[in-house]
């Protein structure tokens, strides 16, 4: 009896990516905890070496670099509130305030406290003069400004 070959999935890589994505989502959900490369590779059920290589090829950064970027992005969100820099550092999973400040500056060009001040100033300006942030054509269409004179 001639056995048919199994049906080939046109994109077998999908299963590989599914596991990789699982690890990425794990980082997104657990960035505030003390996670390391072993936790991440376990989540994807890859060997550590294979995981790091595939992650970097797919996302353009190592898992550790990605974890750092997620922590910084979340710190940026927290710093838009009145939370202190020290508490922000702890809440996004950094152990050392010095390394947090250094990394934050490397990613954003500003120290966390300067960034927080900048965001507070922008928010105050937004509340005071929201129309300064909206193209007039939209504001006018919405009825937020008087119509402009016809040419």
């Amino acid at each position: 009896m001639i056995r048919k070959p199994p049906t080939l999935d046109p994109y077998p890589k999908i299963y590989l990516y599914r596991r990789l994505v699982q690890a990425k989502l794990f980082i997104d959900d657990h960035y505030a905890e003390a996670i390391d490369i072993d936790n991440m590779a376990d989540e994807a059920t890859f060997s550590k070496f294979h995981f790091i290589r595939l992650f970097k090829t797919t996302y353009g950064k190592s898992p550790h670099q990605y974890l750092t970027s997620v922590r910084i992005e979340n710190a940026k969100q927290l710093l838009q509130t009145d939370i202190t820099v020290t508490e922000t550092c702890e809440r996004v999973g950094f152990n050392s305030i010095t390394s947090f400040i250094g990394l934050f500056k490397r990613f954003t060009g500003l120290t966390p406290s300067a960034y927080q001040q900048q965001q507070h100033d922008r928010h105050a300006a937004l509340i005071q003069n929201p129309l300064h942030f909206i193209p007039n054509c939209f504001a006018e269409k919405k009825g937020w400004t008087p119509p402009h004179p016809k040419p």
Binding site: Y11, L20, V21, Q22, Y59, G60
Partner: peptide, 22 residues
Amino acid sequence: CKNLLATYEELKARGVEFTKAP
């Protein structure tokens, strides 16, 4: 996106509804 298969899997996992697979 830079990698469609990975992005497709990630967005699906986040609950995005696709009407056409890659």
